[in-house]
């Protein structure tokens, strides 16, 4: 692991584009090459917002702070530029694209990464696609189905992991990848992520989850607790276990105290 983080977030604040109130209220986070981090938090804590902001979702507006990726400020980059720079977001709610097969979709995405005039080798592509689908226990016919159209929850999430495998990002943001999965699907998906991380130990992974159970299958190097738009606790894998036992209540109390303190300070000043 190198000394400079591949992703560095400083005092990041962000809001929904049409609204006034910040959802992210000053997030600080450093991810080093190859690390697996998990951000946990209750609904509405801002963890999914963080993932979308990092991927450049146009529905959110950054109101302050910085995000550097591989040392470059990415706050002005479009989502496609971020993707090409190596950021991948596995969606919590993958979007349906009727009439576009998974194979066609992935081909277009990979072709978009090539220089003008360069053509994707379709035979290599096909071989890799089939191998990756096998790894994720997907039937080969899956490649010809329209993207997420009529998919079950589990199929959608597998499809996200398939894209992760095919696009080989340096940073994978997994937004509630475990939601809506039964235990079998959860195992397949987490095996897939582990396998990809073994193949490419330089790949950095940020897992965003509400529940601890995904972390039974994927061992994080660090766990952060997010509450009300801030990271309120960071530590090792044991933090997840703390949460499992105490829930988010302890943190809520701690945070309320911190806020009261900050407000009191502000008033004094």
């Amino acid at each position: 692991m190198s000394d400079t983080p591949i992703l560095s977030i400083r005092d990041l604040t962000a809001k929904v584009a049409d609204e006034d109130v910040d959802i992210l209220k000053g997030v600080d986070l450093d991810l080093f090459k190859g690390e697996i981090h998990a951000i946990m938090g209750p609904n509405g804590s801002g963890k999914s917002t963080l993932a979308k902001v990092l991927a450049g979702h146009p529905g959110y507006e950054v109101t302050g702070g910085t995000v550097t990726f591989h040392g470059d400020d990415i706050s002005e980059l479009e989502p496609d530029e971020r993707s090409q720079a190596g950021i991948f977001l596995a969606f919590q709610y993958p979007v349906e694209i009727p009439g576009v097969s998974i194979a066609n979709f992935l081909r277009t995405a990979l072709q978009a990464r090539l220089e003008e005039g360069e053509e994707l080798d379709l035979f290599d592509f096909q071989d890799e696609l089939m191998a990756r689908m096998e790894m994720l226990e997907m039937d080969p016919s899956f490649a010809e189905r329209p993207v997420n159209d009529g998919f079950s929850g589990g199929e959608k999430k597998r499809n996200e992991i398939l894209q992760l495998a095919m696009l080989r990002p340096s940073l994978a943001l997994m937004d509630e990848t475990d939601s809506g999965l039964d235990i079998d699907a959860l195992q397949v998906v987490s095996r897939g992520i582990n396998r990809l991380h073994e193949e490419n130990p330089d790949m950095t992974v940020l897992i965003i989850t509400h529940y601890q159970r995904l972390l039974n299958f994927i061992k994080p190097d660090k766990v952060h607790v997010m509450l009300n738009g801030r990271i309120v606790r960071s530590g090792g894998a044991d933090v997840a276990l703390e949460l499992e036992e105490g829930g988010y209540e302890d943190y809520r109390t701690a945070e309320a105290e911190a806020i009261a303190e900050a407000e009191a300070e502000a008033q004094e000043a």
């Binding site: 496609d80 979007v95 694209i97 995405a109 978009a112």
Partner: peptide, 18 residues
Amino acid sequence: QLFYLMSRGMSEEEAMAL
């Protein structure tokens, strides 16, 4: 839809065309 496709590296026009 556009964000989904763009987050996979397609330009907005490529995404629209797809």
